[in-house]
C-alpha cells in the first residue's frame, strides 16, 4: 500500500459562515465553519480547504479569526484561499494556522507573485487555484483561464498555464471546471487528465461533484491525486466515510478514518 488519494471537503465561507453558491449565485447557509471542519475531520477528511468567497477588506479579520479557530481544533492540513494578493496576506494566514494558501486571481494578474511566494514560504504551501472553462470541443479540446467567478476570459490556455505555475513554484494545482461547478454533473475529466498529465505536482479536481461515483471518476478517468467537493457533504447528502467507502470499492487507495 502506498500514498492514498485524498478527499478534500471545501468550505466556501462568506462573513464567517459556510455557504455554497451554485455557479457562484444562489448562496445557501451550511453552518459554522469550525463545527463543520471538526465534523469532516472526525469523519476522515484528508484535508480541509477554506475559501473566503467575499474576501472584502472589512471581513478579513473574521476570516483570520475563523482560520485560527479551525487550526486549533483540526489537526489535518488546512488550505486557505480567497483574496490572497500580497506576501503579507500569506504570512497572516500561515500565522493564523493555515498550512497552505491558494492563489487564484492574483496569479493571473501577476504571475511573478507565485514565484515570490514560493521563494519566501516554500512550494509546499503554495497552491495555485485555476478556474478553467472549455472554449473548444472535439478531438482537440481547449480550456481557458477565467477570472471574476468565471465571467472574464483571459485568453490564457489552461493546460499551459498550469505548467507555467509549477515552473514558478506552485506545489499543487487546484483545478476547477467553471463549466461544471455547481452543476452536479461530474468533473470535467478531460480537463483533469490534460492537466494532471502535463504537470509533475499533485492536482486536485474541483467542480461538478453530485454523486460518490463522480469522486471515483476524478481519480480513475481524470487521473488526479485529490478530489474536492462542497455541497454533497454540506447538505448531508453523503458523509466523508461513505465517499471513502465508495472509492475503496472502486479499487482506489484511501485512508480510513482513525479512531
Amino acid at each position: 500500500m502506498g500514498l492514498a488519494k485524498r478527499i478534500i471537503p471545501c468550505l466556501d465561507c462568506d462573513n464567517g459562515r459556510v455557504v455554497k453558491g451554485v455557479r457562484f449565485v444562489d448562496i445557501r447557509d451550511a453552518g459554522d465553519p469550525v463545527e463543520v471542519s471538526k465534523r469532516y475531520c472526525d469523519a476522515g477528511a484528508d484535508e480541509i480547504t477554506f475559501l473566503d468567497i467575499t474576501a472584502s477588506h472589512e471581513e478579513r479579520a473574521t476570516t483570520v479569526e475563523t482560520v485560527g479557530a479551525i487550526a486549533a481544533r483540526v489537526f489535518i492540513p488546512l488550505t486557505v484561499g480567497g483574496g490572497i494578493r500580497k506576501l503579507d496576506d500569506i504570512r497572516v494566514m500561515l500565522n493564523a494556522g493555515a498550512d497552505k494558501v491558494a492563489i487564484n486571481t492574483a496569479a493571473v494578474f501577476d504571475p511573478s507573485f507565485v514565484r515570490a511566494a514560493a521563494e519566501r514560504f516554500g512550494s509546499q504551501c503554495i497552491v495555485v487555484a485555476v478556474d478553467a472553462k472549455q472554449v473548444e470541443d472535439g478531438a482537440r479540446p481547449r480550456w481557458e483561464i477565467f477570472t471574476h467567478g468565471g465571467r472574464k476570459p483571459t485568453g490564457i490556455d489552461a493546460v499551459q498555464w498550469c505548467g507555467r505555475m509549477v515552473d514558478y513554484g506552485a506545489g499543487e494545482i487546484l483545478l476547477t471546471s467553471m463549466d461544471r461547478d455547481g452543476t452536479k454533473t461530474g468533473f470535467d475529466n478531460r480537463l483533469n487528465r490534460a492537466v494532471s498529465g502535463a504537470v509533475r505536482v499533485p492536482v486536485i479536481a474541483s467542480g461538478g461533484v453530485g454523486t460518490l461515483e463522480h469522486l471515483a471518476e476524478g481519480v480513475i478517468e481524470g487521473g488526479v491525486d485529490a478530489v474536492l467537493a462542497a455541497s454533497i457533504f454540506h447538505f448531508h447528502e453523503f458523509t466523508i466515510a461513505q465517499a471513502k467507502q465508495h472509492m475503496a470499492s472502486r479499487g482506489i487507495e484511501v485512508r480510513q478514518a482513525q479512531r
Partner: peptide
C-alpha cells in the same frame, strides 16, 4: 527523482504529498 514510478508503472507525482503508511 523525476521519473518515479508506482507498482503498476504509473508516474508518481513529486512532491510526495498526502497520507502514506
Amino acid at each position: 527523482g523525476d521519473e518515479l514510478r508506482g507498482a503498476a508503472g504509473t508516474r508518481l507525482k513529486v512532491p510526495h504529498m498526502g497520507w502514506n503508511e
